[in-house]
Every structure is written in C-alpha cells, then in structure tokens.
C-alpha cells in the first residue's frame, strides 16, 4: 500500500493493512516532527512532493523490499502539506513470517525513502523564518514569515 495524504496519518489503519495470520512479526516505523534540530527550535514542518514520481518511486521501493525479504504485507504512507510538531509525517509498516525480515525491510525502506523519493520538507522555525531542507546544501533558502 502506497499513499500520499494531506491529513494526519491513521496509524491504526496502517497496522491493520499489514496484519495477517501469515505474519509472525509486524514492524511499524513512524517519522515524527521533532521540536529541536541541532539546538534550533522548529514550530512546524511543511512537505511537498513530485506526486507522480514519488508514487512511482515508493512502488519501486515496495517491489524491491518484497524481492529482498520475505514479506507478507508492506505499507508506506507519507503526509504532505502542513504537519504540526509531534505528528507523524511518514509511516512504514511491514509484516513477515519472522521478525528479522520485518526489522531489516522496515529499516531499508525508510532509509532508502529518505534518499531517493522526491519529497521535500520545509522547516518553519520558531523564530519565524523558514527554509527548505536540502541535505548537502546549507540554508538553501531562508526568509522571514513576513516576506
């Protein structure tokens, strides 16, 4: 299951999707919006994506995870738009007959998602400035809330 949603992620629904009598293990990873990054305070985050390619890349990740590990079900849900502090911006859930595959596949999925899926976050800092996060590019863009 691949979903891009503009509302809070329904974690229970994600877990239900991967639950199965064939599974002996379910692993759920939630990425949540953190208040402090390197000592700097965040007020909220905004996410945007390249929808067609993001969906296609997420489907590829699911396919590759299924080919590398023995999975029963797999669900990846990413939230877009405005995300308040402490809420989940991404959920990755996998189920497998045994726990090792579920842990490994879940970790690989979130690690790879963060490297290749065209989704971007904007940090809205508590001081009123905001900036897009582009790893490897320091402060690509910064402006005040009044711009």
């Amino acid at each position: 299951m691949i979903e891009l949603v503009e509302r809070p992620i329904d974690e229970a629904a994600v877990l239900r999707h991967v639950s199965s009598p064939a599974a002996g293990a379910v692993v759920l990873f939630l990425g949540t919006t953190r208040e402090f990054t390197a000592g700097r305070q965040t007020a909220s985050l905004d996410y945007e994506c390249y929808p067609e390619m993001a969906r296609s890349k997420l489907r590829q990740l699911e396919e590759e995870a299924r080919s590398r590990w023995s999975l029963v079900e797999c669900a990846i849900v990413h939230r877009l738009g405005h995300v308040p502090l402490g809420e989940a911006s991404v959920a990755v859930a996998v189920s497998s007959p045994h726990r090792q595959a579920a842990f490994e596949a879940g970790k690989w999925l979130i690690d790879t998602l963060k490297e290749v899926v065209p989704i971007w976050k904007k940090e809205n800092w508590a001081d009123g400035t905001s900036e897009w996060v582009h790893p490897g590019i320091p402060a690509a863009k910064e402006h005040t809330a009044h711009d």
């Binding site: 390249y50 390619m53 993001a54 911006s89 065209p118 590019i137």
Partner: peptide, 12 residues
C-alpha cells in the same frame, strides 16, 4: 519528455 529538477530530497 516529462522533465523535473530534483534538488536533494528530504522526505521522511
């Protein structure tokens, strides 16, 4: 072709 510039991604 459908073309897009993909600056370093930061989803998750």
């Amino acid at each position: 072709a459908e073309l897009a510039c993909i600056p370093p991604v930061s989803g998750g």
